[in-house]
């Protein structure tokens, strides 16, 4: 009996969806707009993340070592830094490697090469390059290095200079901008999602309002609340599902045409590549959002009109 009821509810809901042509089309289109806003926010979020990540990766600090520091001492400091969870990458470059890189960089500039030869030996220091997981963590890392330089085992008095201390203000400002941008992005996303959901809810409510009298008749012939609500919930699910499919289809040509543009803007991300790479996740998010939104909107709307 339960299966028969479920079958009837699905059949009735699907038929009503098809027969209420104009109302269904209008509701589906409004929901498509809602889902498009939500999908756009996914892409905007990813672009923001990618851009911020790019900026974060450009921020690093260098620890210049005393010429008296041995390879083993430098390695000890490198290992200690590597073990920290807030450090993403540590690279140790010996004084010889620094010199070789310097020479290579200024190969075409005889003035600098000659000056270097004139000085004799290697005037450049070995250095450790550190990239933190988050730019806000550089202060703690710099403090750690200084502490190691004062009291560390096998790392005492090997640090000549930490670049962070010179660039502290710029790094801190950048760190604040990144953090504010992320927060602002989330607030704007929530704002748009709420607006979109309200618009969808009201559209579905208006669509069901047209059936207000029919709901009263269903009540009068003795239909149970569940039997009345069921088909409307199915209609809501169909609005959501069809809108999701339309939204996913629309975003294919949109991201295709914007792919190179977004990459060339310096975001480090091609939206079309991102869409294809994350197609399954985006599909699940859009369909689940659409279906749940349609289902809840319908349920709440019909619940309002079912009270006689």
């Amino acid at each position: 009996m339960l299966w028969t009821k479920i079958k009837r509810i699905i059949k009735t809901g699907s038929k009503s969806f098809a027969r209420n042509g104009s109302v269904s089309v209008a509701s589906t289109l409004v929901m498509t707009v809602t889902l498009s806003v939500i999908t756009s926010l996914i892409f905007v979020g990813a672009l923001l993340q990618s851009t911020l990540q790019g900026i974060k990766e450009k921020v690093d600090i260098n620890v210049y070592l005393e010429s008296s520091a041995t390879d083993s001492q430098a390695e000890s400091l490198r290992t200690a830094l590597d073990e920290r969870p807030d450090v993403a990458l540590v690279t140790y470059t010996t004084a010889e490697e620094v010199l070789a890189a310097f020479r290579a960089r200024h190969e075409g500039n005889p003035l600098i090469v000659d000056a270097l030869d004139e000085v004799g030996g290697n005037p450049l220091e070995a250095s450790i390059n550190i990239r933190a997981v988050d730019p806000s963590q550089y202060q703690a890392i710099a403090d750690f290095i200084q502490e190691k330089n004062v009291s560390g085992e096998n790392t005492r008095n090997i640090v000549k200079k930490i670049s962070y201390l010179d660039n502290k203000e710029a790094i801190d400002t950048l760190s604040r901008i990144i953090s504010s941008s992320e927060r602002l992005g989330i607030i704007i996303a929530i704002f748009f999602i709420i607006i979109s959901i309200l618009i969808t809810f009201n559209t579905v409510r208006l669509a069901i309002y047209t059936s207000k009298d029919e709901i009263a008749v269903m009540r009068l012939v003795g239909a149970s609340s569940r039997y009345i609500k069921g088909p409307f919930v199915i209609i809501g699910i169909l609005y959501g599902f069809i809108s999701s499919v339309i939204t996913l289809a629309i975003f294919y040509p949109i991201t295709y045409s914007l792919g190179n543009l977004t990459y060339n803007l310096g975001t480090g991300m091609n939206v079309f590549t991102y869409y294809l790479a994350n197609f399954m996740q985006i599909t699940v998010i859009v369909i689940v959002t659409g279906v749940v939104l349609g289902m809840i909107s319908s349920y709440l709307a019909v619940k309002k009109y079912i009270k006689l």
Binding site: R8, K15, S16, R19, V217, L220, V221, G222, A223
Partner: peptide
């Protein structure tokens, strides 16, 4: 007070479905 989006058969069948008829 007929259900406008249902045909004659479905209007009557609805009352029977609501009563749990097969």
């Amino acid at each position: 007070r007929l259900l406008s989006h249902k045909n004659v058969y479905e209007n009557i069948a609805f009352a029977m479905e609501a009563a749990g008829r097969s």
